[in-house]
C-alpha cells in the first residue's frame, strides 16, 4: 500500500526578486516499509520536497496524497493536527526543546496526542532504550552529543506512531561514527518496527545504506532506483 503519492508537483518561490523554481514536476510513490533516500547536491530541492511531503508547505501545483488523503488543499490549522498523528519529523539540528529533558522531549509528542501519562512514560523509556540512550533520559539536550540528540529526535518521531518519518539531512552535522550509528538505528527500526523512513542526504555513506534512492537534479527526479 502506498503511504505517499506525489503527482507532478512544482514549487516556485515568488517572494524573491527573481522567482526560484525549486521543484519542476516531481512524481513518485512511497510504499509502506520503505527506507528511501532523497539525494542530490545542495540547492536541488530536497528540503523543499520534504517540506511539501510533510505538509509544512504547499506546492505551487500538483497533488500530494498521504494514505489516500489529499493534503494539498488542507487548511494550515488542520495540517498541524494531521502532522501530529501521521508524520514524524527529524530535522538537521536543534530538534529538541532545550528546557525539557531527553525523556520529556520524547514524551512531549504523546502529550500533544493526549496519551495518558503512564503509557507515554513507558513508551518513551522503551524508545530511548532502543536508541541506546536510556541513561541520558534525565539530561537536557545541551548535555548530549550531536549524535545522541539526533537519536532522541528519531525516538520522538517514532513515539507518535506515524505513518512515516521524514528526516531532512539528519546526519549533516554529525561525524562519521555518529552518522553510521544513526543510520543503523533507523535501519533497525525500519526492519523491526516496519517504520517507513524518507531521508534526504548528499553524503555517499548514507546513500549506501538506503534501499531506494531518488536522485533530484534541478527540481526534477533524475533517477529512482531500488536496490535489493
Amino acid at each position: 500500500m502506498s503511504v505517499i503519492k506525489v503527482e507532478n508537483i512544482t514549487k516556485v518561490y515568488t517572494e524573491t526578486a527573481v522567482p526560484v523554481h525549486a521543484l519542476n514536476g516531481v512524481s513518485f510513490e512511497i510504499q509502506e516499509g520503505e527506507f528511501t533516500a532523497i539525494v542530490g547536491p545542495s540547492g536541488c530541492g530536497k528540503t523543499t520536497l520534504l517540506n511539501i511531503l510533510g505538509g509544512l508547505d504547499h506546492p505551487t501545483s500538483g497533488r500530494v496524497e498521504i494514505s489516500n488523503i489529499d493534503i494539498t488543499e488542507m487548511k494550515d490549522s488542520d495540517l498541524i493536527n494531521f502532522r501530529l498523528n501521521n508524520i514524524g519529523f527529524v530535522f538537521q539540528a536543534y530538534n529538541l526543546i532545550p528546557v525539557l529533558t531527553t525523556l520529556e522531549n520524547v514524551e512531549f509528542i504523546m502529550l500533544l496526542q493526549k496519551v495518558d501519562k503512564k503509557k507515554r512514560r513507558k513508551r518513551s523509556m522503551d524508545l530511548l532504550e532502543q536508541m541506546g540512550i536510556a541513561e541520558k533520559a534525565n539530561q537536557r539536550p545541551s548535555e548530549l552529543s550531536g549524535g545522541q540528540q539526533q537519536r532522541v529526535a528519531v525516538a520522538r518521531a517514532l513515539a507518535s506512531k506515524p505513518n512515516f518519518i521524514l528526516a531532512d539531512e539528519p546526519t549533516a552535522n554529525l561525524d562519521s561514527v555518529s552518522t553510521s550509528n544513526l543510520l543503523d538505528i533507523m535501519a533497525v527500526m525500519n526492519r523491526e518496527e516496519k517504520e517507513t523512513f524518507i531521508f534526504s542526504t548528499h553524503d555517499q555513506r548514507v546513500i549506501d545504506k538506503a534501499r531506494r534512492v531518488i536522485t533530484l537534479e534541478d527540481g526534477r527526479v533524475k533517477s529512482d532506483e531500488i536496490r535489493e
Partner: peptide
C-alpha cells in the same frame, strides 16, 4: 523552536 514545535504538531 516554535517552528519545530509547530512542525511536529503543536497547535
Amino acid at each position: 523552536e516554535f517552528g519545530v514545535m509547530m512542525s511536529v504538531g503543536m497547535k
